[in-house]
């Protein structure tokens, strides 16, 4: 089942074992190399916590289910801290080709809710296969050669 970053932002996060609401989705941290979601960021600012994708029992249309509350953890490295601060957020990120030309702003990203694997990037009216992502960081998401149609 296909999901998108925009539509899943703000979705409530619930513990499967206790049925308690733990917070809501603020960001999705992506592993650019594997082109999949690595972790879900819950909450904002100093209190932001992460849950690894592997700890989710399900990413549903109405709630993100975490196996157990203990799966929530604070950011453990610089990259996770940057993600918690929203610096790595893909929605709104500049899309840059590996040739050094700007392709536009990333409007949304779709992914498989079952596996967390990224499917497509939406840039304006263009849909780009997630396989062309070469890297992503605080400045830009870098897309491979085939996406650049500049002269």
């Amino acid at each position: 089942m296909s999901e998108s970053f925009r539509s899943s932002a703000g979705r409530k996060v619930v513990s499967r074992s206790s049925a308690r609401e733990l917070g809501s989705v603020s960001h999705l941290l992506v592993d650019a190399r594997q082109r999949r979601i690595a972790a879900v960021v819950i909450g904002r600012g100093k209190k932001a916590q992460l849950v690894d994708w592997t700890q989710l029992s399900g990413f549903g249309p109405d709630a993100v289910m975490v196996g157990d509350e203990s799966a929530l953890r604070p950011p453990s490295d610089d990259r996770e801290r940057a993600a918690a601060a929203g610096k790595l957020e893909l929605v709104g990120k500049r899309a840059l080709s590996e040739q050094g030309n700007e392709l536009g702003e990333l409007d949304d990203v779709t992914f498989d809710a079952g596996t967390g694997v990224l499917e497509e990037l939406l840039i304006g009216t263009r849909r780009v296969h997630a396989g062309s992502v070469l890297g992503s960081g605080s400045y830009a998401v870098v897309l491979g050669e085939s996406q650049d149609h500049s002269p």
Partner: peptide, 23 residues
Amino acid sequence: MLLMTASQIRGLPVVTVQGGEDV
């Protein structure tokens, strides 16, 4: 391939392909 002047290149950010960072 494209024509650029040195003044267009000066001031451009240097960006890593793998990191997506302007270094």
